[in-house]
Design a protein around this nucleic acid. Structure first.
Lengths: 198, 198
DNA sequence: CAAGAAGTAAACTATTAAGTTTACTTTTAA
DNA sequence: TTAAAAGTAAACTTAATAGTTTACTTCTTG
């Protein structure tokens, strides 16, 4: 790997860490240069402005988000098992260091500049990419009884987010402190008591 | 009302508006003075630092939050009616301009300085003040069947927040664009299908 | 109504941080 | 192996903005 590429990675790593810890506004380009073991001029050779650096970080983070495989509905496996599996994957995404970092950095900027919001919100992450079609198949196969599939999908994901994501994002909880198993169990149970076909 | 008091109010109003629109960091004391029709010196006579002004705004906002009356469990009224009433009050709090403003301003700071978080999080707002004891009475009166009351209360409130609060806070939705009635209906229905006593 | 409390505009200071320049050294690739 | 691409440290410019000072005016209250 060329020195130039190494420096680039160092700069991105250092900036990601510092932006996450202190916020974009409270991180100086001098700090980034120092933490990256690069000169300030090198930082500016790679990224013409602080904004460009911020953008590059968000892009890299989104790329690095390991999107778990889409789970396909199966008529052979009990619906609660399948929903539990989806919930587990979702929670592991929501609680990953990577996702929390993107979220914190992005939300900070978003709250100040709503223009950024749409950009980030339009991306579909995690199980929301496929949950609606999963549920549709559950209904088609008489395992579920749902009138408004879009709404039901939101209920499911929002319930997980409310318990495992926002409290950590805002610093009220740490990922370790959460009763993950119980949260998943109860989310699935609540969802099914409402939507399981008789 | 004395001129001095008027100026104080003007300054708080102007700062609240500007902090909300642009964030605390992107609001200058000169802007605040101008918007408040006061001299900068007057601003500093009332509030010794920008931080002190910020704090005063948060305190005033919290005071102004009209906390609806605590709803007491009644064995005479159907449980779904009672939960709907609670949900309605909660949604009107979560969607009030006042609450959204506090939330946006406070969360912005919170995401940057987790120390602030505890302070704000420790306050119990809305129906969370009494929902657990409400549910406990529902259980005692055989209207509800709940094992973990604390958890169930969170499920109820989180579901409302997920639909009516976070999307507005982050700018994905406006309060008017939400199908409030449906959200309340469905939240209550889901909660009861899980927890209503047979 | 007079003293002092509080208001005003505007210039000033000090600090912070983004981005540039300079003079020089190290990597890299034809 | 050598030219150019990229690195370096450190001093510099520029702009923004928190907070102060000054010289003066207007409220307010005993």
């Amino acid at each position: 790997m060329k020195l130039s590429d190494k420096k680039r990675v160092n700069i991105l790593d250092a900036a990601e860490q510092l932006f996450f810890e202190n916020g974009v506004e409270h991180t100086t380009m001098d700090q980034i240069a120092k933490a990256a073991q690069a000169s300030k001029r090198t930082v500016y050779n790679h990224f013409t402005t602080k904004d460009a650096l911020f953008e590059a970080i968000i892009i890299r983070m989104v790329e690095h988000l390991n999107q778990d495989d889409e789970l396909r509905f199966s008529n052979e496996i009990a619906i609660d098992i399948q929903l539990t599996k989806i919930a587990q994957q979702e929670v592991s995404l929501l609680n990953s260091v990577h996702f929390l970092r993107i979220a914190k950095i992005a939300f900070m900027q978003m709250l100040q500049q709503p223009a950024l919001a749409e950009d980030i919100a339009s991306n579909q992450f995690g199980c929301m990419r496929y949950l609606e079609s999963f549920l549709r198949q559950g209904v088609a196969n008489n395992k579920l009884q749902i009138e408004d599939i879009e709404f039901a999908a939101k209920q499911f994901v929002y319930q997980l987010k409310s318990f495992v994501f926002y409290p950590v994002l805002f610093g009220f909880e740490t990922p370790d402190s959460l009763p993950i198993t119980k949260i998943i169990e109860q989310t699935v149970a609540t969802f099914l008591s409402r939507y399981q076909a008789e």
